[in-house]
Amino acid sequence: MKRMVFLALSLLLFLTGCNWNPNHEYHAQREDIDGTNLMESGTRKNSFYEEDLQDEDYNTNQNPNFIDLTEDRPDIGDDQDKFREVIELKSEFKPGAVFINGANAYVTVHTDKSYSNKDRKKEEKKLYETLQKAMPRYHIRVTIHDND
């Protein structure tokens, strides 16, 4: 019997001790929706998101591992234009289709001249070396087509 009374009292003491509050109120942490009060500093009136994102000097391109989000960011079309620009520097060639698939670039070049297979391979090699200097990050495959 003494054990049962002792067990009941210790259980009652344990349960009331966990929920004891002298004011009978719950004091939650001061925080707005989404925790914006926690982001405020001592003297600033606005939080980081309201003030700093509106600032002209805010730059999202600080980490090179993140995607560039500016409007003038380079893309595959710029690389294709660069291939075409290099081909146009050679007066006898006209750029054709340029396809980029991952690290591979497939460049088609048109010419008005007629080449033998040996001469065509030689011209493709010269053009390949020129394009490789301009865009070294790609594995380039050059094909010359006659307009005959």
Rank of each mutant, 00 (worst) to 15 (best):
L11I: 15
I140H: 01
Y49P: 04
Y106S: 12
S41E: 13
G77Q: 08
N37R: 13
L15G: 07
D52M: 15
S114L: 14
S10N: 04
V98H: 01
R73F: 05
T16R: 04
R137H: 09
M4Q: 11
Q62N: 10
D79I: 08
H139E: 13
R137S: 11
Y26D: 06
D148L: 15
L12N: 05
I67L: 07
T60Q: 06
H24S: 13
N21Y: 02
I144R: 03
N63L: 06
E31K: 11
A97E: 14
I140F: 01
M1A: 15
N59A: 03
Q80F: 03
S47I: 13
G96Q: 04
K122S: 07
V109R: 00
L131P: 00
D52P: 07
V107M: 01
E92K: 13
W20I: 05
Y106P: 04
S41P: 10
I67V: 13
H110S: 09
E71C: 10
K125G: 01
T130L: 12
K133P: 01
D57C: 11
H145M: 12
N61K: 06
L7N: 04
Y138L: 02
I67W: 05
L89N: 12
L13V: 12
V142G: 03
G77M: 08
D34N: 11
E40I: 12
N19V: 12
D32W: 11
D34T: 14
D32H: 11
L38V: 10
V5W: 09
L127T: 02
F83G: 04
N59H: 02
A134S: 05
K118M: 05
N37T: 12
H110G: 09
D79E: 05
N21L: 04
H24G: 14
D57F: 15
I87M: 00
P22W: 01
F99E: 15
Q29L: 13
T43H: 14
A105M: 05
Y58D: 04
Q80T: 07
D78T: 03
S10L: 14
L69Q: 09
A28D: 11
S114M: 10
I87L: 03
L38E: 10
G102Q: 02
I100N: 02
N101W: 10
I87Y: 00
P64H: 00
Y115S: 00
R141F: 14
R141C: 07
G35I: 07
S116T: 15
A8R: 07
Q54N: 14
Y49S: 15
D75G: 08
D68M: 00
I33K: 11
D57L: 13
T111I: 05
I33N: 10
K125D: 05
I144A: 01
M135C: 10
G42T: 13
R141V: 11
T60L: 15
H27S: 11
D34W: 12
H27K: 15
L89C: 07
H27V: 15
S10Q: 02
V142P: 03
L12A: 12
K45Y: 12
K90N: 13
L131T: 05
Q80V: 13
D32P: 08
H145C: 08
A134V: 03
K82S: 07
K94N: 09
L9W: 08
Q80D: 02
P22Y: 03
N117M: 07
E124W: 03
E31P: 06
P64M: 00
Y106A: 09
S114H: 08
K113S: 06
D148V: 12
I87F: 02
K2V: 06
G42V: 14
I100A: 01
E85R: 08
